[in-house]
Design a protein around this nucleic acid. Sequence first.
DNA 1: CCCCGAACTTGACAGTGTCAAGATTTAAAA
DNA 2: TTTTAAATCTTGACACTGTCAAGTTCGGGG
Lengths: 201, 201
Amino acid sequence: MNQKPYHHGDLRNTLIETGIELINEDGLGGFSLRKVAAKCGVSHAAPYSHFKDVQQLLAAMADHVTEQFTVSLQASVEGQEDPMSAMGELGTAYIAFFEQHPAYLPFLFFQSGITIQVDGVEEGVPAYPPFAVFRTTAYRLFRSLGLPPERDGTMLMAYWSLVHGVASLLSSSGVRYSGNWQEVWQVILQSGGTENETDRA
Amino acid sequence: MNQKPYHHGDLRNTLIETGIELINEDGLGGFSLRKVAAKCGVSHAAPYSHFKDVQQLLAAMADHVTEQFTVSLQASVEGQEDPMSAMGELGTAYIAFFEQHPAYLPFLFFQSGITIQVDGVEEGVPAYPPFAVFRTTAYRLFRSLGLPPERDGTMLMAYWSLVHGVASLLSSSGVRYSGNWQEVWQVILQSGGTENETDRA
DNA sequence: CCCCGAACTTGACAGTGTCAAGATTTAAAA
DNA sequence: TTTTAAATCTTGACACTGTCAAGTTCGGGG
């Protein structure tokens, strides 16, 4: 439904993908409109036929990356029977994503202001897709643990915040921790109700 | 011990403070060396007498802000008798700091690479000062709860990650959550051992 | 007193985002 | 098919950025 090849042949998508490559190579700070244009073999002002701003290109790039992120999260819980281990896999996938692409976290979360509706279920604002995966998986777990539904919001935000915090500390700040991160977010899962495998040393 | 007033009178400190003002007004993206210089009434190259880089000025600014952050955290636990409520206050202070200065989080954590030693207690790398406050307060609580010391590291990272995650989601991303954040990180504190005041509605 | 060196200014350079004007090509209309 | 309009891309310019080299000014130690 979009633009078909004119002169270059699907610039716009090429700009988006090349821009993402650039960020992965040189980091968010090394990004520039003119570099992307040069890498695509077009003149420095060519992007303005497809994006009114650098911000708009960055937003389109962020959308693309967000989609990959969502796919990655979904894949991690697909086929998982046990809700508890599904949550564990989800957290692992969340963190692995930002560990493998350290530039993505500042890029996704400090760039254009996404607004994530968390609370009032779908009132206008569409839920942030990765968060939606998070929510459905979490609710499944909470039901299986027999948690009271009033605590859903609190527990969901706790788990999401913790996983996001770990990803944040790992990928951006220079935090070194020799312990097992998986144990860290298990702390919340355990607190849900069942106390499986506390340390038994 | 530093430079005394020559022409301007304590530029360097003025640059640092003015730079921080700029970031609070225009955000991290609106920051520029030349703007800071202009705001200080000096020429655009004057900062190079005190900093070899923009990065170095930013690093000095970050140090200054980090100190304020540490003071704020320490003040929040001062005089608190009950370890549990001390931890609550600490988390509140952590988040309040970044809520009041939304530009600080990307500035502190995505700028120059601080390295935070978490695990092996003081082996070379000095602990990140705000984290040090966190650690001592947390350990006090864990002891009062009778937690096994082997779990100290895990519990500490869990609590820090969660609080940092909440601050991150609140101040950078456009997350809207109508619930009570304080309840959110209480989830971890409860999971420590005692279950005080679960919802009773 | 003089003079050395630290602090600051001036002017230049390459690189950035953005826009206006023109050239080129494609799709649609006649 | 020829003509026309719109989309795409280029070129050149502007203001702004960080950085550096060369000068200028000023203060304190000889």
